[in-house]
């Protein structure tokens, strides 16, 4: 197994008010067993040793579940490959001599904090607007098996619930729309009997917050579904559309 020489073109931006620019970095001795982030670690190590400012990027679990990592690599959210996050992208997907472009998520609702780090707190605010079931945490509730849930519904709800909130859908959408993220949460609760009592209130509140945050509108290009590391389906967006229309025509005022 040989090692690769690569050229990275990385977005550098010292802070929210800096204009930012693409900067070229050569990287040598890249092993194909490295993950993309480990390759960036190697580059950062070198930058620190040379007294330069290392590249800031978000990452944490490095196993594709926390949703922290967020790079737009060679024109795609989480890079080439499907069903993976950037931390699960391995260098064997690249070859010697490649030029790799690395940019942050770009959306007005996700302002750049520094280099490749963006602020995704809009997602938290959408969640706080209605992404929950209003139960107390007393534990004095009905037995977990009191309401049987059809396996299909439970499975679909789970599929929606696997969203890791990474924001790849927004990053990849030509309109910077957050529909897939919001729909996944709305759909999860809409499918479960426990979520039904608040379903209408929830969808109205979450969509209102989504709009307030300045995300774009969905034009059904389907790019989000393709780039979503968890493969969350457009069906959930359709379900949210249904829920929303039902909620808006039946609400009291």
């Amino acid at each position: 197994m040989g090692t690769m020489k690569l050229t990275l073109k990385i977005w550098r931006q010292s802070g929210p008010n800096d204009k930012g620019k693409m900067v070229s970095y050569p990287v040598n001795d890249v092993s194909e067993d490295m993950s993309f982030l480990e390759m960036l670690d190697v580059l950062n190590d070198e930058l620190v040793r040379n007294g330069d400012d290392p590249i800031a990027f978000d990452h944490d679990c490095r196993e594709g579940i926390c949703g922290s990592c967020s790079l737009f690599i060679n024109g795609e959210a989480h890079g080439p490959g499907r069903g993976i996050t950037t931390c699960q992208l391995h260098m064997r997907k690249f070859k010697d001599g490649d030029v790799i472009q690395v940019e942050p998520w770009r959306a007005g609702a996700f302002p750049v904090v520094k280099d490749l780090v963006v602020d995704r707190s809009a997602f938290d605010r959408i969640q706080a607007a209605g992404g929950f079931v209003s139960v107390n945490t007393s534990g004095n509730l009905v037995d977990g098996n009191a309401i049987p849930i059809p396996k299909n519904d439970a499975d679909s709800a789970f599929d929606a619930a696997t969203c890791i909130g990474c924001g790849a859908c927004v990053a990849t959408c030509t309109n910077s729309s957050a529909m897939l993220f919001v729909a996944a949460k709305v759909s999860q609760f809409a499918l479960l009997p426990q979520g039904r009592p608040e379903a209408r209130k929830r969808v109205l509140a979450m969509v209102e917050q989504m709009d307030k945050e300045g995300f774009g509108n969905c034009s059904n290009t389907g790019a989000c579904e393709v780039e979503c590391p968890k493969g969350i389906s457009l069906e959930h967006i359709a379900r949210m559309n249904r829920e929303y229309v039902a909620a808006s025509v039946t609400k009291d005022r």
Partner: peptide, 21 residues
């Protein structure tokens, strides 16, 4: 209680064909 609590919160645990946990 934890299981009951989580089910009530909408945690989609695996279920069998009878709809039970």
């Amino acid at each position: 209680n934890i299981i009951d609590q989580c089910v009530a919160q909408g945690v989609p645990f695996a279920r069998d064909y009878g709809g039970l946990l």
